[in-house]
């Protein structure tokens, strides 16, 4: 079904608008911030073109940035782990249930993707806030007199991230579970495996690519966010992307912001590159089918 004439110009004509957009709006701008990160913002607020290592020296040696980077990796890592633990069983349920209306379960799986991220994040204020559902219930029951302070700390940031990322994890695990040939587990059982053994020896290993894709996606999306810590975190719960936002929008220090963005890009882009090198991007693309 694919035409393979060499030198056929038609595919390139079809691709021109998309590739132009990617080149102009992503590739060249990305190269541009590399150059920009070596510029300098002088005391007067003007920018000086040139080749200065000051931004890079600051970003790479200042312990402040290192600490926030560590904090970012920790928050994203814990969120990813929690997502993997929480996500596997629902994915397994949807893939293997004999429930007649499985299509509705799939719809339920997709539903969170359609509910706005900012609304899902802010909804936790109505749950855990000083006058939120949990405090209202506990006070009504007479268990506590004063409302508990549950928000604006690292756990609440992680909670918000898990809530945001879990659907990605479930979807990726589901896709890989759904692709497993059912006769394999039947074969394992007919050879004397218990259900648990068949799961451990056959199903679990075969679902690992989906689990890995889910973890990668959750980690990269989690480590790149600045909205969740701004809404659910306290003043000390900044993540690396918050530093970028701060430098670009608040301080207008664009060269420094460029250097910070590139650190984030190197780290997360590097992870994606390693992943695609060994496992291919197809696993993630499968979720769209």
């Amino acid at each position: 079904m694919t035409a393979t004439a060499r030198g056929d110009r038609r595919p390139w004509v079809l691709l021109t608008p998309a590739l132009t957009a990617v080149t102009l709006l992503l590739v060249i701008p990305a190269c541009f911030i590399v150059v920009y990160s070596f510029w300098l913002r002088t005391g007067t607020g003007a920018e000086q073109a040139g080749f200065y290592l000051d931004n890079w020296r600051e970003v790479l040696t200042d312990p402040f940035y290192r600490d926030i980077l560590g904090q970012t990796l920790r928050i994203a890592g814990i969120s990813t782990l929690v997502c993997a633990l929480l996500g596997y069983m629902p994915a397994y349920f949807i893939a293997y249930t004999r429930f007649r209306h499985r299509a509705y379960l799939l719809l339920l799986l997709m539903l969170p993707f359609w509910i706005s991220y900012i609304i899902r994040t802010m909804s936790w204020i109505s749950i855990l806030g000083v006058s939120g559902a949990v405090n209202a219930l506990l006070q009504w029951l007479g268990i506590i007199d004063e409302p508990l302070q549950m928000l604006y700390n690292e756990p609440s940031v992680i909670l918000g991230l898990v809530h945001f990322l879990l659907p990605f994890m479930i979807l990726n695990i589901y896709v890989s579970l759904d692709g497993i040939d059912r006769s394999l587990t039947d074969a394992a059982k007919s050879l004397g495996c218990t259900g648990w053994q068949a799961f451990r020896e056959v199903t679990l290993p075969l679902s690992l690519p989906g689990l890995a894709a889910g973890c990668l996606l959750c980690f990269v999306l989690g480590a790149g966010t600045y909205i969740t810590p701004m809404i659910l975190g306290g003043p000390t719960d900044a993540m690396f992307a918050n530093l970028v936002y701060e430098a670009i929008i608040t301080q207008l220090n664009w060269p420094l912001g460029s250097a910070l963005s590139l650190v984030l890009l190197a780290l997360l882009g590097g992870l994606v590159a390693i992943y695609t090198r060994y496992l291919g991007i197809d696993q993630i693309a499968k979720s769209f089918r």
Binding site: L25, L26, P29, A30, F32, G224, V244, I248, L264, G269
Partner: peptide
């Protein structure tokens, strides 16, 4: 594949 913050800053 690029973190959205980086895409935003670059553009």
């Amino acid at each position: 594949l690029v973190p959205e913050v980086v895409l935003a800053v670059a553009l």
